[in-house]
C-alpha cells in the first residue's frame, strides 16, 4: 500500500518515480513468489492445486496501493498477488500454502482461501463471483455506520456472466454503497476464450455496469500507474457517497489457468507475443529505465524474501488433525 503522502501527491494525478519504484518492488515480489510457488508445487511440496496470476501483478499492486488500511477486499482463486498487495507477509502466505498453523488462514484455507482480516483481506474465493455480494454487504455496513471505508471485490471476465455478479451490481447501485468492483479482465474463463463466453467485445465489458447506471472507470491493467490512478479515482468516488464504481482493467494471464495447465486451447504464437509485449513487470522496468545492476539489486532482495518465506513455511507447525472442526461454529 502507498503511504498517505504518496497518495496525496498522486491526487494531482502524478505518480512519483519513488512510488513507481515501490510498485516495481512489490510486483517483482509477487512475480518471484508465484514462480517459487510453481516450483515448490511441481516439487510435490504443496498440497491441493494452485492458480497463479503471472501477468496480472499491476492490477493487484495498483488497486491495493490506492486503498486505505481499513478498506476491505474480497479476492478470487487467483489470490496471491491481492493478498501480498493488501499487506499480508509472503511468509504467512507461503505458510498457508504449506498448510501450516502460521499461515494467514492457519492452514484451513489454502491458496484459494487466503484471509487476513487484520489488513482487510476478507478472503479469497474459490467460487467464481462468490465474494462479490459479500462486498456489497460490507459496503452497506460502512454506509449504515457512516464509516469512511470502501469495500473492493476482485473478479474476472468470466464472473461477469454469473447471476451473482448482476444481482450484486444492481443492489450496490440501487443503494449507492461505497464499493469498487474490480474487473480483472484477462479474456479467459479458465480455458474458454472471450469469443466463446462473451457476446460483447472483450474490451467493452464495462458496458455491463453501465446497464445499472453505475460509474465505470477503465485503465490499462498492465500499466501500474494507470491502474493506481484509476483506483484512486474510483475510491474517491465511492468514498464520497456517490455510489459504487466498476473499475475495468484489461489484463493478461501469461500462464495457464492452473499450475501444470498444458494450455492446449491456447495459440502458442499469441501467448509468446503477449509475454514479450504485455508483461507488466518488464513494462515498468523499461519505464523506470532500470539498469541490469539496479534490477539485480531489487531482485536479490525480493528473491531472498521469497526464499526466507519457504524456510519459514517449512519450519512451520502442522495442525493437529482433530483441530479440523475447531472453527465450524463460533
Amino acid at each position: 500500500m502507498a503511504t498517505v503522502e504518496e497518495r496525496a501527491e498522486s491526487g494531482g494525478r502524478r505518480v512519483s518515480e519513488q512510488l513507481l519504484k515501490t510498485f516495481f518492488r512489490e510486483m517483482l515480489l509477487i512475480r518471484r513468489f508465484e514462480e517459487k510457488v510453481e516450483e515448490r508445487f511441481r516439487a510435490g511440496e504443496l498440497p491441493g492445486f494452485l492458480h497463479v496470476a503471472i501477468g496480472q501483478e499491476a492490477v493487484a499492486t495498483g488497486v491495493c496501493a490506492a486503498l486505505e488500511r481499513d478498506d476491505v477486499i474480497a479476492s478470487t482463486h487467483r489470490a496471491h498477488g491481492h493478498a501480498i498487495a493488501k499487506g499480508t507477509s509472503v511468509e504467512r502466505i507461503m505458510a498457508e500454502l504449506y498448510g501450516k498453523l502460521e499461515g494467514c488462514s492457519h492452514g484451513y484455507g489454502g491458496s484459494m482461501h487466503l484471509y487476513d482480516v487484520e489488513v482487510g483481506n476478507l478472503g479469497a474465493n474459490a467460487v467464481v463471483a462468490g465474494g462479490i455480494p459479500g462486498i456489497v454487504g460490507a459496503a452497506l455496513a460502512f454506509l449504515m455506520r457512516g464509516e469512511p471505508r470502501v469495500a473492493v471485490a476482485f473478479f474476472g471476465d468470466g464472473a461477469t456472466n454469473t447471476g451473482t455478479f448482476h444481482e450484486s451490481l444492481n443492489l450496490a447501485q440501487l443503494w449507492k454503497v461505497p464499493a469498487i468492483f474490480v474487473l480483472e479482465n484477462n479474456g479467459w474463463a479458465e480455458s474458454t476464450p472471450a469469443t466463446q463466453q462473451l457476446p460483447l467485445p472483450v474490451d467493452e465489458l464495462a458496458r455491463r455496469a453501465l446497464a445499472y447506471g453505475m460509474k465505470t472507470i477503465e485503465a490499462d491493467g498492465q500499466d501500474v500507474e494507470a491502474v493506481y490512478l484509476a483506483a484512486l479515482a474510483a475510491r474517491e468516488h465511492a468514498a464520497a457517497g456517490k455510489g459504487p464504481v466498476l473499475l475495468h482493467l484489461r489484463t493478461y494471464r501469461l500462464t495457464g489457468h492452473y499450475v501444470g495447465d498444458p494450455q492446449v486451447y491456447r495459440d502458442r504464437a499469441e501467448l509468446k507475443g503477449e509475454r514479450e509485449t504485455k508483461d507488466p513487470v518488464e513494462l515498468l522496468r523499461a519505464r523506470l529505465q532500470l539498469t541490469d545492476e539496479g534490477l539485480a539489486a531489487i531482485d536479490a532482495q525480493v528473491t531472498a524474501e521469497v526464499e526466507a518465506s519457504v524456510e519459514f513455511a517449512k519450519a512451520g507447525t502442522d495442525p493437529s488433525p482433530e483441530d479440523a472442526a475447531k472453527y465450524v461454529y463460533a
Binding site: 456489497v136 454487504g137 455496513a141
Partner: peptide, 19 residues
C-alpha cells in the same frame, strides 16, 4: 430487489462487518 443471491450474500458481508 428480487435477488436472493444478493440478499443473502450482502447479509453475509454486513454480518462479517459486525452487523
Amino acid at each position: 430487489p428480487i435477488s436472493e443471491i444478493a440478499i443473502v450474500g450482502s447479509g453475509i458481508g454486513a454480518a462479517i462487518q459486525g452487523m
